[in-house]
Amino acid sequence: MNEGSILFPIAEVLSAVLLVMGAAITLIGSAGLLRLHTFYERVHAPTLGTTLGTACVALASMIYFSALGGRLVLHELLIVIFVTVTTPISLTVLVRAAVFRGTFESKKR
């Protein structure tokens, strides 16, 4: 980045809004982790916050650096795709492990 680079005002505003929105969504997901009571409730809120929050921050980064460099920047799409695919899978694995552990514990008694 050079100091003489000028961004379009719409790119500045759009990237700032997406960045704040992504941070707010992630914060809400983190607050859900603290506020909710059971494991099954707690695992859901951060998953949604992570997926949507990361997508908003990556989209803001794509818009900002595309406008700054004068060319289309798509590197962040890999991050969004990876997070979007792996987060629900890890949620499913965690919940199934908890269900298995719960049924195993109940059979033990």
Rank of each mutant, 00 (worst) to 15 (best):
L94G: 01
P46C: 12
V57G: 01
I63Q: 04
M1R: 11
S30L: 10
E3L: 11
F8R: 12
A97N: 12
A31P: 00
G22Q: 01
E105G: 06
G29M: 06
T51W: 05
T87E: 04
T86I: 14
H37D: 10
T38R: 09
E105K: 13
R71N: 11
A16F: 15
A60I: 05
T47M: 11
T87K: 07
E3D: 14
V43E: 03
T87R: 05
G22W: 06
F82M: 09
L68K: 09
E76C: 08
I28C: 04
V17K: 05
A16V: 08
L91N: 09
S15A: 13
G49P: 00
C56I: 01
L72H: 13
G53T: 05
R109T: 11
L33A: 08
S106D: 14
L91M: 13
H44M: 12
H37T: 14
I89Y: 09
L34W: 14
V99P: 02
T38A: 03
V73W: 06
T47K: 10
L78E: 07
L34N: 05
G70L: 04
M21F: 15
I81E: 05
T47F: 01
G53E: 04
L14V: 14
R35H: 03
L34Q: 07
T84N: 01
C56P: 01
N2F: 08
E41V: 03
L27K: 02
M1T: 13
A23I: 09
H44W: 03
L36Y: 12
I63R: 04
A58E: 02
L34P: 01
T92V: 11
A67H: 03
F39N: 08
I79C: 07
V13H: 02
V93N: 01
A98C: 04
I28Y: 14
P9M: 13
A23C: 14
I89R: 08
S90V: 11
F82C: 05
L33N: 04
V80Q: 06
F100M: 15
V93M: 10
G102Q: 11
I10H: 12
H75C: 00
S61W: 03
L36V: 05
L68N: 08
V85T: 07
V20K: 07
V57F: 01
V99L: 15
T38K: 12
G49L: 03
T86G: 03
T84R: 01
M62W: 01
L72K: 08
T84G: 14
T103K: 15
L7R: 07
M62D: 01
P46D: 03
F104R: 13
G69N: 08
G70N: 07
M1G: 15
L19E: 04
L36G: 03
V93D: 02
I79W: 05
F82Y: 06
G32Y: 00
L72R: 11
A58G: 00
T86N: 03
A55D: 04
N2Y: 08
T26V: 03
G70C: 11
F100H: 13
A24W: 10
I79P: 02
V80K: 06
L27P: 04
A16N: 15
T92M: 11
V95A: 05
L77E: 10
S30D: 00
V95K: 07
V20N: 04
V17Q: 03
S5H: 10
H75G: 08
L18T: 02
V93T: 09
V43S: 09
T47P: 02
R96Q: 13
L91A: 13
E3F: 02
G53N: 03
L36F: 15
L59K: 02
F65H: 09
L18Y: 10
L34T: 10
S5N: 06
M21V: 14
